[in-house]
C-alpha cells in the first residue's frame, strides 16, 4: 500500500502547474524514502527532476516501490476539483495499481477521485552528481523578470558568471543588451544574491525554456543556477521541508 498526504495540497498543485508545459506523461516513482519524478520534454533538451522526501509529508507509507504512469493533463483535471487550502492524499491499494486515488480534504468537504494510470515506457537518464563551477542564488522573481525582458530581444540568452556577480545578455537583430545582477547579503533571505564562482562560465540557452521553467517560481522565493562550461545548467527550486524541483537545460552551441 502507498499513501502520501500533503498537509498543504496547494503545494502539490503548484508543482504540477510548474511542470505541465514541459512534460506530458510522467512516471511518478514512490519508495520508502519518498516520491520522485524524472522526465524529459518532447524535444529532449530539458529535463524535469522532482524529489519529495517522505519526512515532508503529513503521513507517508510505501511498503513496496512502485511506478505510477500519469498524464499531467488528466492529473490537472482531477486537481482542479480541489481547493488551494485542501489537504491532499495520494493512495494506491494494489501492488500493481491501475488507478491512483486522491482525497481532497477541507474543513467541510471530503472529495474522492480515481485517476487511471498508464504504462509508460520512458527513458531514464543517469544525471551525475557533479560539482558545478559556478553556482548562483538569486530571487526567483528577478530571474523570471530578466528572462521575460531579454526574451523580447532574442530567443537565446547568454549567461556569464564572475566573482563580481552574474550577467545575462542578448544579441538580436534589433540590437543587444545586458543585465548584471550584483551580489548582496541583505538580511532578507528571499532578496539575497550569492555567487560561488570557482571557474567563470559563459553559456547560451534558449530563453523559451527558461520562461517555462519560471512557472516554478511559485515554489520558492529563491532560485539556484548551477553551471559548468559546456554542460547542461540546472535551475533548482527548493521546496521547503520537502525536497526540490530541478530543471536541466542543455546549452546552445555557438552559432
Amino acid at each position: 500500500m502507498f499513501e502520501a498526504k500533503f498537509e498543504d495540497g496547494g503545494l502539490f498543485k503548484k508543482i504540477v502547474e510548474a511542470i505541465k508545459e514541459l512534460v506530458k506523461n510522467v512516471n511518478l516513482e514512490a519508495n520508502g524514502t519518498g516520491i520522485s519524478l524524472q522526465a524529459m520534454d518532447t524535444s529532449h533538451v530539458a529535463l524535469v527532476a522532482l524529489q519529495l522526501n517522505e519526512k515532508g509529508f503529513k503521513k507517508y507509507r510505501c511498503e513496496k516501490s512502485l511506478t505510477m504512469g500519469l498524464s499531467i493533463e488528466n492529473l490537472q483535471k482531477i486537481l482542479k476539483c480541489s481547493g488551494n487550502d485542501d489537504q491532499i492524499t495520494l493512495r494506491t491499494q494494489d501492488e500493481e495499481p491501475t488507478t491512483l486515488s486522491f482525497t481532497f480534504e477541507s474543513k467541510n468537504r471530503i472529495s474522492e477521485f480515481q485517476l487511471n494510470l498508464m504504462s509508460l515506457d520512458q527513458e531514464q537518464l543517469g544525471v551525475p552528481d557533479t560539482e558545478y563551477s559556478s553556482v548562483v542564488r538569486m530571487p526567483s522573481n528577478e530571474f523570471t523578470k530578466i528572462c521575460r525582458e531579454l526574451g523580447n530581444i532574442n530567443e537565446a540568452i547568454g549567461i556569464e558568471t564572475s566573482k563580481e556577480g552574474i550577467k545575462f545578455y542578448v544579441k538580436g537583430d534589433i540590437g543587444e543588451g545586458q543585465v548584471s545582477v550584483k551580489i548582496n547579503d541583505t538580511e532578507k533571505p528571499e532578496e539575497r544574491v550569492e555567487c560561488e564562482v570557482d571557474e567563470p562560465v559563459n553559456l547560451s540557452f534558449a530563453v523559451r525554456y527558461f520562461n517555462l521553467f519560471n512557472k516554478a517560481s511559485a515554489l520558492s522565493s529563491q532560485v539556484i543556477l548551477s553551471m559548468s562550461q559546456d554542460q547542461p545548467l540546472v535551475i533548482e527550486y527548493i521546496i521547503e521541508e520537502m525536497g526540490s524541483l530541478k530543471l536541466y537545460l542543455a546549452p546552445k552551441i555557438n552559432d
Binding site: A46, Q124, G126, A206, Q231, Y248, A250, I253
Partner: peptide
C-alpha cells in the same frame, strides 16, 4: 531546435 544539443549527449540513458 537546430543548434540545441540533446540532453542525451550529456546524460547516459540508464
Amino acid at each position: 531546435e537546430e543548434y540545441q544539443i540533446y540532453l542525451n549527449k550529456y546524460f547516459p540513458i540508464v
